[in-house]
Write a protein that binds this DNA or RNA. Structure first.
Lengths: 192, 192
DNA sequence: GTCTATACTTGGATAGAC
DNA sequence: GTCTATCCAAGTATAGAC
């Protein structure tokens, strides 16, 4: 499974064949089918591993953020981690590659809901309920955040330029600080 | 080329082989290589055709929008068109599938810049320069818009649910109307 | 320009020895 | 559980007849 993640990272969905993964893992190609039944199952299992790993990191980072400004800081930090570590590529490759096969796409879609749920809880925890009521429900905000995050990861590793995306995180930070200074939003967040 | 677009739409990047495209076009597989040299070149040519087609539609729609509210309306309309017509799928498949091959990815990335440039001109045309100066430069806004648009298209055709994305466009419309009513932004836009 | 035929490669998946 | 060996399908690309 580590080999599957590694191959996805370096060779993409297209290159993630049973043979290549097995070679990377230093074992035989037949074992993929013995243990996972199919390559698609192995890739989904790899996605689960990556998701669990990143979710742990995200949860820890978000729980330490006491204000919206700090939240934008951790968002920028984990975003950069995703790009540097190649986890972003793994996710994007699977989302994109999987959209061809309906069954595989459904599996990926189900795993994305974990992330929208996480984003939603982060939003409700960090933003004033009054503010949400005046603008948009947390579920919509969460969906938009996940979509934006995904789009930024795609564009960033497509043109190999992470600076544009990081500039946006910096911009969000500035605006959050401004909103806090103006008293529009609280500078510390309440209990979740 | 029409066949290439059609195959990308129905079978995705994975299924877009020379054989299948040729079959769809009712001709022979060898012709792909005679006319385009490789499958990748054909796909890039198909992307150019789709992009030109959609750009024409987008430009016409945006030029008719006289206010930010109307701009959100046309954005929602063309977004739904993209999903229904399958153009969104073509784009997403190529972006995602192409990220595996560096050369192909570079070709796709170059074609994306056309869209960020378009988004930037739409932003500068529709938003008060004072407002931009106070928040973020048009280039950053444009990049964010393209990323969000891309992410929404991916998520929408991944889970087969366009309602969540369309709800966001409706929300943007409401907020634009609210901002206009409060006098934060002008209700009609100036010359470009 | 378009076709047939073909060489070559790679991939998914299974059977069976150990 | 892991290996070798193998089958079969599908892909890219080219050569050559027409």
């Amino acid at each position: 499974m580590d080999a599957a993640i590694d191959v996805l990272r370096t060779d993409g969905y297209h290159g993630a064949s049973a043979r290549r993964i097995a070679t990377r893992a230093g074992c035989n190609q037949g074992l993929v089918f013995y243990h996972f039944g199919s390559v698609a199952n192995l890739l989904l299992a790899a996605l689960d591993a990556v998701s669990a790993d990143r979710m742990e990191r995200y949860s820890a980072a978000v729980s330490h953020a006491a204000s919206l400004v700090e939240l934008t800081d951790v968002a920028a930090a984990v975003f950069e981690e995703d790009l540097d570590s190649g986890y972003a590529k793994v996710l994007v490759e699977l989302i994109a590659g999987g959209s061809g096969d309906p069954a595989f796409g459904a599996g990926v879609a189900a795993r994305m809901e974990t992330w929208t749920a996480f984003a939603q809880s982060a939003v409700t925890g960090a933003v004033d309920p009054m503010m949400l009521a005046a603008t948009a429900p947390a579920s919509e905000v969460a969906y938009a955040i996940v979509a934006l995050y995904l789009g930024l990861e795609m564009l960033s590793h497509l043109d190999g330029d992470r600076d544009k995306a990081l500039a946006l995180f910096g911009r969000a930070r500035t605006m959050a600080a401004l909103a806090g200074a103006l008293g529009i939003i609280p500078t510390t967040r309440g209990d979740e």
